[in-house]
C-alpha cells in the first residue's frame, strides 16, 4: 500500500538485544530487527539514525563488524536528550533505525598499506568496524596500528577488546590518557605524542582519524610531520543531522553535506574547511 510517508524517513523497528555499559557515560546497544526484517549491509564508517520513542532521533555511527552485520551494534555517549533516553533502554525495548547512511572509511583502498588508526574519546567507536574488517583480511595489509587517546583511564572504551588486540602479534595498540591518578600504569599525554614514535612507513600508510575536531587537526599535523601525504589521511566529521539523507541542510559544512558527502572525508578535501571558524 502506498502511504504518504517518505520512504527513507521512515524507521525500521528494532529490538534491543543487549545493553553494555562501557564507561560512566558510554554504552553499547546490540539491536535485532523486531519483525524479522533484513539488516542492511553497512560499510565501516557509516551511521544510522536511531529513534527513541517520543524523544527523537540521533545519528550514531555503527561500531559492529561489517563482515558480520548482525546484530547491529552502536556505541554512543549519553550527552543529549535522545542519547540520555537511549541510555535508559533495556533488553527487549524497541528503537527505530534508519540507515545506513554516509561515506565509508577507505578500508579497501588501504590494502597493501600500513594502517594507522588514530582515535580520540568516543571516536574509537566509528573506527572499530575498520579493525574488524582488517583483522578479517589481515594478510592484505601491512602494519595495523591503533593510537587511542582519551580523557582518563576510566573513559577507555572497549577495554577488554583493546587488551585482546594488544596481545595479538599482528596489531599494535597504544593507549594514552590526558590525565590520570598515579594508579594508572599506562601512558599519560595527548594522542598526538604517540605519532612520532609509532613504527609505520609514512609513504605506504593510510591513516584514519576520528575524534574532536581540534584533535583531528593536530593529529593530521603530526602525521604530516612524519611525512604521510595528506591524501592518505581520512577523517570522520560530526555535525547536527536531522534527515541523514542530504535534504534538511543541517549538517552542511562549507560546500559539503556531512550526511551524504561524509562523514568520512579525505583530509585534503576538508583541511581548509577545518581551519575556518564557525563554518
Amino acid at each position: 500500500m502506498k502511504t504518504t510517508v517518505a520512504g527513507p524517513m521512515v524507521p525500521t523497528m528494532a529490538r534491543v538485544n543487549r545493553v553494555r555499559k562501557e564507561t560512566h557515560d558510554t554504552f553499547t546497544l546490540e539491536l535485532h530487527p523486531a519483525y524479522g526484517q533484513e539488516i542492511h549491509h553497512f560499510a565501516a564508517g557509516q551511521f544510522n539514525m536511531l529513534y527513541v520513542f517520543g524523544f527523537g532521533e540521533v545519528a550514531i555511527s555503527i561500531s559492529g563488524d561489517p563482515t558480520n552485520p548482525k546484530p547491529l551494534i552502536h556505541t554512543t555517549r549519553a550527552v543529549g536528550n535522545v542519547t540520555k533516553a537511549m541510555a535508559k533502554l533495556k533488553t527487549g525495548d524497541m528503537i527505530g533505525v534508519r540507515g545506513p547512511f554516509g561515506s565509508a572509511w577507505p578500508v579497501k583502498h588501504a590494502e597493501g598499506d600500513d594502517v594507522v588508526l588514530v582515535a580520540g574519546g568516543i571516536g574509537l567507536a566509528p573506527l572499530r568496524p575498520v579493525i574488524y574488517e582488517i583483522l578479517a583480511n589481515r594478510r592484505k595489509y601491512g602494519k595495523l596500528i591503533l593510537l587511542y587517546g582519551t580523557r582518563t583511564p576510566s573513559d577507555i572504551l572497549y577495554r577488554k577488546e583493546l587488551e585482546s588486540w594488544r596481545s595479538r602479534l599482528d596489531m599494535e595498540v597504544y593507549v594514552t590518557v590526558d590525565r590520570s591518578s598515579v594508579n594508572w600504569q599506562g601512558n599519560v599525554g595527548v594522542v598526538t605524542t604517540l605519532i612520532p614514535k609509532a613504527g609505520f612507513d609514512p609513504q605506504q600508510t593510510t591513516a584514519m582519524i576520528c575524534g574532536p575536531e581540534i584533535m583531528m587537526r593536530y593529529v593530521a599535523l603530526e602525521l604530516q610531520k612524519r611525512g604521510v601525504p595528506m591524501s592518505s589521511v581520512f577523517a570522520s566529521m560530526e555535525r547536527n543531522m536531522k534527515c541523514g539523507i542530504g535534504l534538511c541542510g543541517h549538517c552542511q559544512m562549507g560546500p559539503t553535506f556531512i550526511c551524504k558527502d561524509g562523514p568520512v572525508y579525505p583530509y585534503d578535501k576538508i583541511r581548509e574547511l577545518l581551519l575556518k571558524r564557525e563554518i
Binding site: G120, G121, I122, R151, D178, T193, G211, I214, M215, Y218
Partner: peptide, 19 residues
Amino acid sequence: EHRLQGATLQLLDLYSSTD
C-alpha cells in the same frame, strides 16, 4: 614546544562531555 602543545590540548579537555 611539543610538551607545550600537548599541555594546551590536555588543558582543553577535548573529550569531556561538555565540549
